[in-house]
Design a protein around this nucleic acid. Sequence first.
DNA 1: TTGAAAATACTGACTGGTCAGTCACAAAGT
DNA 2: ACTTTGTGACTGACCAGTCAGTATTTTCAA
Lengths: 214, 214
Amino acid sequence: MDLKLVETASNPAIPSPIKRDNKRPHQILNAAIELFRDRGFEATRLEDVADKAGVSKATIYLYFESKEDLFYALIREKVVPMLEQTIAQADAFQGPASEFLRMKAKGVGRLFAHSEQGAILKLVISEARRFPDLSDYYRTEVPERGLENLSKVIRRGIDEGEFRECDTEAAAAAFMFPLLMTGIWMNSVGPDEIVRPDETIDFHCENFIRGLQV
Amino acid sequence: MDLKLVETASNPAIPSPIKRDNKRPHQILNAAIELFRDRGFEATRLEDVADKAGVSKATIYLYFESKEDLFYALIREKVVPMLEQTIAQADAFQGPASEFLRMKAKGVGRLFAHSEQGAILKLVISEARRFPDLSDYYRTEVPERGLENLSKVIRRGIDEGEFRECDTEAAAAAFMFPLLMTGIWMNSVGPDEIVRPDETIDFHCENFIRGLQV
DNA sequence: TTGAAAATACTGACTGGTCAGTCACAAAGT
DNA sequence: ACTTTGTGACTGACCAGTCAGTATTTTCAA
């Protein structure tokens, strides 16, 4: 799987001359994630990214075409591998629908709440309107793929008599949204004393299942 | 109620010389909301705000001290009135806790999904790390105030035998998050075909109550 | 093995464009 | 006349992106 994006003026088909087995791109990307999350794309100075990565600004241009390309690369390098893992996990699952939901909540919820994936989600949300093609890619590949998958699982739960009949698409969104929101919260206004992410996710998951059971 | 913020270098106690009974500030603020939401604070040029408001850039400086002040004023002028209304509504409510939740979901959910309040939420989330005092103010006044209030209502529901015993703080967050997330979704990656905000909120509300009932 | 040449990796200093914020002046209202 | 409301033109700082040149690593002939 590869990040394909429509070619635009601001996104000229990225030849991406990243040389392999070189740690520089990863150093730079890791520095960029944190700064982009904390200050936003526009307000982040490439010089600060360079400092944080321990290189000079010009070095960034050896590995990335432009500041925008750095942003695109971030999604390419950090999101796609996570996706493959999550999908494999979901495909392998056999068992009652409610167990799948529990697994999903623990996996996805914790991932967004405590890893760099939450920072990336918040970043994409923040910059979505400025990078519509990237936002479309991320939306369809990450949350919508998750929603579709969930929708099917809930349908299966209904067919097998575990869950009550309901609008499965709405249910999928209602299940997913607290997981995403917890991740965004922890990477923007939070962390704080009021919202305890793990407890919130656990409660949500159990209460959601309880509400759905016949 | 007034927006008080700790005085910092970037926020020098805002004397706010906004002359009253003048439509200019509102024109400017309305133009700013939309541009800030779509491009973010940093990437929005004051000249574009001016164009959209139908004035010259220098005119903005008759009513606002700086670009940052414009952002602060946006919260002052657009959030505080909404808050007062919501609080009055909540205080006046008498009836079963589940009815309160329904009212809350319809009110707050629709507000964030379909009005400028969703855009403001998304904006604050996006810029939270860059404007920590504003983010603190917003977080404590808007979502956390809502969470506290909800927490109490759920407690009341438990005490009156309507709801099962549970972690009321986690429950409040789990109830609130889909409402907030729907608003953010609609103002960033959405609108799209997959997420229908009203159906999502309605399902969430009913399923949440169903899960909570004894 | 050594060391000169080639290839690769990196950088400091610069530039051209952009934009927040200013100011001297103009128009409109009273 | 005087105050309020407005503006076009300017400026100084900032920063993405470039480039000429330096360091380091690799290659390979003697």
